[in-house]
């Protein structure tokens, strides 16, 4: 009786190990490409690309990662299911990033539109004023508070979550936000 089964299927030659052995030239080529790409991304970082620098850096990083995964980790020659596991993981990371970022972005847009900025308003309502910075940075805290004072802030106690109204108020909230962010 055939004794040897894998995945519920009989295996013809159980003693053979079907592993792909890449030639040295592959490894040398890959590490060479990785070094070149590292140099590229390093050099580009000195140029002022503005917001595009994130895109460029990420594209280069993805190319590098693909090289490592495909050749060093043998995914190109490996069981296709391992590739499925890997890509599936990336998709779930994408879901995690996508929905969370979507909320964060759309929340900002709506907060602007409705003149609510939850993060900072909540702190005002706690009755403690705007607590930013950290306990052991009294100067910064004083500085921020002074800026808020200068913009006529500190109107704590009002209910938040809608009904703030007023263009003035909006400008004020934005100024606070800016003051706090800097």
């Amino acid at each position: 009786m055939a004794k040897v089964f894998l995945n519920g299927q009989p295996v013809e030659h159980p003693h053979e190990v079907h592993e792909h052995i890449s030639p040295m030239s592959t490894y040398n080529g890959v590490i060479g490409a990785l070094f070149v790409l590292t140099g590229l991304t390093f050099a580009v970082s000195f140029a002022d690309l503005g917001p595009a620098s994130l895109t460029v850096a990420m594209v280069v990083a993805f190319i590098k990662a693909t090289l490592v995964v495909a050749y060093f980790m043998h995914l190109k020659y490996d069981d296709k299911f391992h590739l499925f596991v890997f890509l599936g993981t990336i998709i779930f990371v994408g879901i995690f990033f996508g929905f969370t970022m979507f909320d964060m972005k759309s929340r900002d847009a709506l907060n602007d539109e409705q003149e609510t900025f939850v993060r900072w308003k909540e702190q005002e309502n706690a009755g403690k004023g705007l607590v930013v910075g950290v306990d052991n940075v009294p100067e910064r805290r004083a500085k921020v508070l002074a800026e808020i004072e200068a913009h006529g802030g500190g109107h704590g106690g009002g209910e938040h979550g809608g009904g703030h109204g007023g263009g003035e108020h909006k400008a004020e909230a934005k100024a606070e936000h800016k003051a706090a962010a800097h």
Partner: peptide, 22 residues
Amino acid sequence: GLYWHLVDLVWIFLFPLLYLVK
């Protein structure tokens, strides 16, 4: 090896994001 390459992979993304990107 797979584990070590993953450590490398993480760094491939960490490096530009933390040190380089403007």
